[in-house]
Amino acid sequence: MTALRFILIGLGARSRIWRRVLKEHPDCSLVGLVETDRDRLAGVLAETAGAVGGISLDEVAAEVEADVALLCTPPGGRQSQVAAACAAGLGILAEKPLADTLTDAESYVIAAKEAGVPIAVGLNFRYLAVTQALKSLFSPDRLGPPEFGRFTYERWRDGRLPNLNKYPMSMKQPMLWEQSIHHFDLMRFVYGVEPVCISARTFNPSWSMYDGDANVGALITFTGGLEVTYQGTWAGNWQKMGFEWRTECQRGVALQQEMFGALSYAIRDDPELTPVPLPESEPWVDDARALLADFVSHFRKGIPLPCPGTDHLNSLRMVEACIRSSNGEGTVSLCEQ
C-alpha cells in the first residue's frame, strides 16, 4: 500500500514538528513543500529526499501525486490554499485556528464539504496525556459531573524568540485567536458541553509587545449550567509560567497546575490532593504524533475524522463572542441551553 502522501504548506516554526512526526510515521510520506521564502524552501528541500518544492500549492499539486495538504501557514489569508486543496481533491489538515475570522472558517468548511474532502484542525492539546486523564476524572464513579471551574493562563510570550511564529505580533486579537482557542476547545472537549453565552473583556497592558490585545477575561456559561471563569494573557510580566485549571464537581475537585501535567484531585473531605500518575511524554511532539495517527486511521480504517472543521467552528464562535462582548455587546448568546 502506498503511504499517505502529504504536501506541507508553510515552513515556519510549527512545520518542524510536523516534518519530524511525518518522517517517523511508517504510513506517511512528505512529497511536497510549499513556501514563499525561497531560501527557506531550498534549505528544507535539501533535507527532504524526493520532495517537490514550489511557492504555491497549485504549483506543487500539479507536479506530484498527493493525498493531504497540511497547512502550517498563518490563519489569515488561507483562501487560495484551501481552494487549491479542494481543486486537487486533497484532504486538509490545518494548524489551528482554521482562520482568523469565523466567516472565513465557515467558508472553508463549506468548500471542503462541496469538494468531498475531509478538513481537520490540529488541536493537538486534546491528545495530551493530562487532557485525557482530566477528562476521565469526571466520570460518575469518580468526581462526577463538573458544575463550575476556573481556568488561568499567565504567560510572558516573547514573540521575538526565533522558535516562535512572528505573525501574532501584528494580529488584532493574538491571545484569543492563537492561544485561547486552545483553551476553549479543551473546555468543550474535556467537559463534553457546548457554550451558551459569554461575557468578556480584552485589553493590552502598557508593556505588551503585541499590537493587539494580549489579555482576555471571560465568564462562560455552558450547556447544563456549567460556569467557567477564564483569564488568559501573553503579557504576564514575569517569565515564570502561571497555569491553573480547577474544576468543581459533585463529589470533589480536579486541579491541573501545569500546562502539560501536575494533575491531581480531591474528594470534599480529603486532607490532601491525590496526584494522578501520567506517562512520560514529549510535549508538542507526542500529542502531534497521536493526532496524526488518528488522522491517518481516518483514511485507512474509516474511524471518525479527528478534530473536524465542523466541530472547530464551535470554538471559533467562542472567540468571536469574546470579541463582540468586549466591543460593547455585553453578554453574547451562542445557543439555547
Rank of each mutant, 00 (worst) to 15 (best):
M1P: 11
T2H: 15
R5K: 14
I7R: 07
I7D: 08
I9L: 14
G10T: 01
G10M: 09
S15F: 00
S15G: 02
I17D: 01
R19F: 01
V21E: 00
L22N: 01
S29A: 15
L30P: 03
V34G: 01
V34T: 00
A42F: 06
G54E: 08
S56I: 10
L57C: 02
A61L: 07
E65V: 12
A66W: 03
A66G: 06
R78P: 09
A88E: 12
G91T: 07
A94F: 12
D100I: 06
E106R: 14
A111K: 14
P118N: 09
L128C: 11
V130A: 11
D141W: 07
R142L: 15
L143G: 04
F148G: 00
R150N: 12
R157Y: 13
N163S: 12
N165R: 14
K172D: 14
K172R: 15
Q173T: 12
Q179Y: 15
R188V: 14
V196W: 06
P205N: 04
S208F: 09
M209R: 12
D211S: 09
G212C: 12
V216W: 10
A218R: 07
A218V: 11
G225V: 12
T229N: 15
G236D: 10
N237V: 00
Q239E: 10
R251T: 12
L255W: 10
G261P: 01
A262M: 04
D287H: 03
A293D: 15
F295E: 01
F295G: 00
H298R: 08
F299K: 11
L305W: 06
R317M: 08
C322L: 08
E329P: 05
E329N: 02
V332R: 10
